[in-house]
């Protein structure tokens, strides 16, 4: 199955000639749940179970899933902000797992994260200039006048005036704060960004501005981006390719247009049917999912989605469906995918 997984995700929207910027193979992360008297874990929870994915330079990969699907943990693991339990992450050919703590810190300028809540992710006690310039200080990229100049350049890049540099964050709005967060992430000159629900804490009108800013940054700096969100319309707007995550596994992967027009996995179809229709979408039937996300401590046998799937059969309970090609660049982990294309 492993072979199949790798093989099918290697083919991407981007021509095969260009090399993947980030290549994640069979990544797993489990957490100990509850500890007994002597610190032995009572149970383990696998938040990410065997995910493989690739992000190419200049590509925005959307990662969608409901709360508890493991998408945030996956984003953290790709950056090794959370230590994965197993699997590999190669960044531009460098095996992240083999780096020592010190090497990893130095390497962090190449890969950055944008956080969800701009009120929580910005240190209130630092000036905006120092927040934006922190990576310059840490990695000794610029000092004195050069540092000041670079900070102003970064602020302008995210649409903030230079005079913000001397202010404190409490004078800023949510959108402006998120811009500071983005400028802060860009300071080290990263090639890869993990955007963890970067607009879900913002007003709707501000969301669009921030999304456009991210697209603009992608175009100008050619960074690859893993865009994590639970909002399908946001992902549709920004992503080139979309991965759908359910209970720690990728259940469908497709170019954005293909996914939104021809979702093959029943879970994706249910997600899409729950999202409000915009524009001239054809009338759809609302698919209601029964029950909640199963506990990841005790995942279902076979297909992880079968407990809530309208199509589930006994075969689904026995055999886990591998992610396999069902169309050009389109993969689904389902025994009975909806035929498309």
């Amino acid at each position: 199955m492993n072979v199949l997984t790798n093989q099918c995700l290697t083919a991407s929207v981007i021509p095969a000639a260009s090399r993947a910027l980030v290549e994640v193979t069979d990544l797993r992360k489990s957490f100990a749940v509850g500890r007994g008297l002597f610190g032995r874990p009572r149970a383990t929870l696998e938040a990410v179970s065997g995910v493989s994915l690739q992000v190419f330079p200049g590509e925005i990969v959307g990662l969608v899933g409901e709360s508890g699907s493991g998408k945030t943990t996956l984003g953290r693991c790709v950056l090794r902000l959370v230590e994965p339990t197993a699997g590999t992450v190669r960044f531009d050919g460098v095996d992240l797992m083999s780096l020592t703590a010190r090497e990893l810190r130095a390497f962090r300028k190449h890969m950055q994260i944008i956080f969800q809540d701009p009120y929580d992710s910005i240190n209130e006690r630092m000036r905006i200039g120092d927040l934006v310039g922190e990576a310059l200080t840490i990695h000794r990229l610029a000092t004195g006048e050069a540092r000041r100049g670079r900070i102003i350049e970064l602020l302008e890049q995210v649409g903030l005036r230079a005079e913000f540099a001397d202010r404190y964050p409490h004078t800023l709005s949510g959108g402006q704060r998120q811009r500071v967060g983005i400028a802060r992430a860009l300071a080290g000159g990263p090639q890869f960004l993990v955007a963890d629900e970067p607009v879900s804490a913002l007003d709707l009108s501000v969301q669009a501005q921030i999304l456009n800013l991210l697209l603009d940054i992608r175009d100008r700096l050619n960074v690859g981006m893993l865009f994590i969100s639970h909002d399908l319309s946001v992902v549709r707007f920004i992503a080139d390719r979309v991965l759908v995550m359910y209970l720690g596994k990728i259940v469908e992967s497709a170019p954005a247009d293909a996914l939104y027009q021809n979702a093959a996995h029943p879970y994706t179809q249910a997600l899409l049917s729950a999202a409000p229709i915009t524009g001239e979408g054809r009338p759809r039937q609302r698919i209601r999912l029964q029950g909640d996300l199963p506990s990841p401590v005790n995942p279902p046998t076979g297909c992880v989605f079968r407990t809530r799937c309208p199509k589930a059969t006994s075969h689904c309970a026995a055999v886990e469906p591998p992610l396999r090609a069902i169309g050009p660049h389109h993969y689904a982990a389902c025994h009975y995918p909806t035929a498309s294309h």
Partner: peptide, 21 residues
């Protein structure tokens, strides 16, 4: 808090995280 993780994500050393953030 996310701002502490943000500092770690930038590559700040544990000492910098402790005293600066």
């Amino acid at each position: 808090r996310a701002f502490v993780e943000s500092a770690r994500a930038l590559g700040a050393s544990p000492v910098r995280v402790a005293f600066r953030h």
